[in-house]
Design a protein around this nucleic acid. Sequence first.
DNA 1: TTGCTCCTCACGTCACGTGAGGTGGC
DNA 2: TTGCTCCTCACGTCACGTGAGGTGGC
Lengths: 180, 180
Amino acid sequence: MTRAAERKPLRVGDLAKAVGKTVRAIHLYEELGLLAPVTRTTGGYRLYTEDAVARVNWIGKLQEMGFSLTEIQGFLRDWEGAGSGPEAMQRVRAVFQERLDETRRTMARLAALEKDLQASLDYLDSCAGCEPTHHKAECKCCDYHGHDPARAPELVAGLAGSRSERKPDVPLAHLTEGIR
Amino acid sequence: MTRAAERKPLRVGDLAKAVGKTVRAIHLYEELGLLAPVTRTTGGYRLYTEDAVARVNWIGKLQEMGFSLTEIQGFLRDWEGAGSGPEAMQRVRAVFQERLDETRRTMARLAALEKDLQASLDYLDSCAGCEPTHHKAECKCCDYHGHDPARAPELVAGLAGSRSERKPDVPLAHLTEGIR
DNA sequence: TTGCTCCTCACGTCACGTGAGGTGGC
DNA sequence: TTGCTCCTCACGTCACGTGAGGTGGC
């Protein structure tokens, strides 16, 4: 931090813009004790230094890691309550390790989703050239264009089962058979 | 779906377990018109077929893609209101394309986070062997163990700035200089 | 003085969580 | 009959969003 930077106080709107959060969010972080303005003007305007930008971005990262704001509070309290340096560091390490594992699990889920989406797009692409006389119900499971008739991607197949497509003539009595 | 599977109705708790959601969530999807039991027992118990498992998993995928439940409602309505098959398919395609882009952006953010976390863990590892006489404030920015003294990972450096570590003797008057 | 930014309540929203009080089902 | 599952309200929570009504600052 340079002296020049310290001489440019940020107002809450500037801070919000700098970090991509809303003013309301900044106020909330303050209520929760995660962030405080260095001072206020006589009129009550909050004033921040550039440090606040780093702090809010840090909060954002922890949120992306899956921490709730309440957990971030606790995390800071743990840190401040810790004794020696190495001890505090090892506590933090354990938390980060758990979050790294969780982040990787999330990434794996998203990668699977990405594949699903790509497969769905490929499937839908081949529908573009189809004759408009086909009803949409046919498209979920057609055997044109080399489609495997039984295997529309799950994201496409999931469009089935809407109420308007249910056949009301299928008897359902067997479901309640033997149940009073 | 086999006939045998159709003969095994699921109760709401079975369905919830099968999809990893709560009963409350299932009820909510029903309130929003996203899912309905095929029938009810005379006592009012909801009964589902295996189709419901696919439907709820489909809802879950759309949620992971960043859709709100209200958006999923609209998505279904669009589908049901669409005219010809190919036309409906192209609408769905546009939505999926947008979601694929968004999913990739999210994955990129998480990958950056993963790097951050790994760097932080590496940094903290070297603290394990440090003497316990060091105060934690020193650890955020030390020059032992080959650390670049000015460059603790952001996730570690962010622990700075807690109220208990502020130096109250730093004059802040310059911040309000020239501001009434 | 005008227009923009800020202030503090305080209620709304989204996707559920969590009882309360009562009943079905083997 | 016991114990488990289910039912319907209905209020709580989390991270903000969104005004309402008023004032600061160049």
